[in-house]
Write a protein that binds this DNA or RNA. Structure first.
Length: 294
DNA sequence: TCTGTATGTCAAA
DNA sequence: TTGACCTACAGAC
């Protein structure tokens, strides 16, 4: 599920299984052959996420910048150091994806690449395959700084400044439903968190950013921080509170995970009004017209 | 075999 | 505001 929480999980995963290791880098598909050659044989220093951007830092002072876009996904495999991290990114089928660890025999090297593998990273202990990214390029530290400078604060970074979010949101007259998706305002939120957080804070998606007062804006920020931190921990987006679910079972069923996202025509979990859907800037926007009146 | 769909972004009109 | 693009898969034909 490539909103910001998935990218942070990836950064954590790359750091834990590949940092300090020399990597073979290749492009089985061929589309990233030149970039792979610049990184092949280098040691991974570490990985970091800012919003939906993933940066892999190599010890020749180059970064691999990856943006998964809609379809991008990583698959992992390897020995026991890779257990528990099999696959992060877009779902293979509708719904959330958490692939079970098969716990099978010892690692014997990566399998033949299946499908369009843009990049394959291989260490002595395991491998990672990247498919379908929107962006996959080698950049310099200066280029990385330029990219970071454009992005808004990332709610998943402990040092992120809420006041920066307040400034960026309250300065604009666009609807808050658009602004939450704008990576220059807030880095990491996508269509699911946008809809869900606006519902949780009872904010109308059409309120202008500058029409929200400081408290409301900070509450939005705090809610994004909380719900995205949960997303990192769970590996999926769950925004409903237990008291708003019909089914108390765990793990939370997909049908109970959201308040409004993809629930058009179904009754609002709070007030029973039918959840509505419309297009906003070519993306589906889901909301409850009755609850979201602030 | 073809179509539709998806948690995203960019450039062109 | 629209179309193009990245990929895989379910479901319809």
């Amino acid at each position: 599920m490539p909103e910001g929480h998935s990218i942070h999980r990836l950064a954590r995963q790359f750091t834990s299984v590949f940092a300090g290791q020399r990597l073979s880098v290749s492009s089985p598909q061929g589309r990233f052959a030149a970039g792979a050659a610049q990184l092949d044989g280098q040691t991974l220093v570490g990985a970091a996420a800012h919003g939906k951007q993933l940066f892999l830092e190599f010890d020749n002072e180059l970064f691999l910048r990856i943006h998964l876009g809609l379809y991008g996904a990583f698959d992992f495999g390897g020995d026991e150091t890779f257990r528990g991290a099999s696959s992060i990114g877009a779902p293979r089928r509708v719904g959330e994806r958490e692939i079970a660890d098969d716990g099978e025999a010892a690692y014997a090297g990566p399998p033949p690449p299946k499908g369009a593998v843009r990049v394959r990273l291989v260490s002595n202990h395991g491998w990672a395959d990247l498919r379908g990214p929107t962006a996959c390029e080698v950049i310099t530290p200066g280029e990385q700084r330029a990219i970071l400078a454009k992005l808004g604060p990332d709610p998943l970074q402990p040092e992120a400044d809420p006041e920066e979010f307040v400034r960026r949101l309250n300065a604009r007259s666009s609807p808050v439903g658009l602004l939450l998706m704008n990576q220059e305002v807030l880095a990491g939120v996508g269509n699911v968190y946008r809809a869900e957080v606006l519902f949780r804070r009872q904010v109308s998606p059409w309120r202008a950013g500058k029409a929200l007062d400081r408290d409301q804006t900070l509450q939005l920020w705090n809610d994004v921080v909380s719900v995205m931190a949960d997303g990192v921990a769970a590996g999926r987006i769950i925004t409903t509170l237990p008291e708003h679910r019909n089914d108390a079972s765990t793990p939370v069923p997909t049908a109970e995970a959201h308040y409004v996202y993809k629930r058009q025509g179904l009754p609002c979990r709070i007030c029973g009004t039918e959840i509505a859907v419309t297009d906003m800037a070519a993306r589906k926007l889901y909301w409850c017209a009755s609850c979201q009146d602030r």
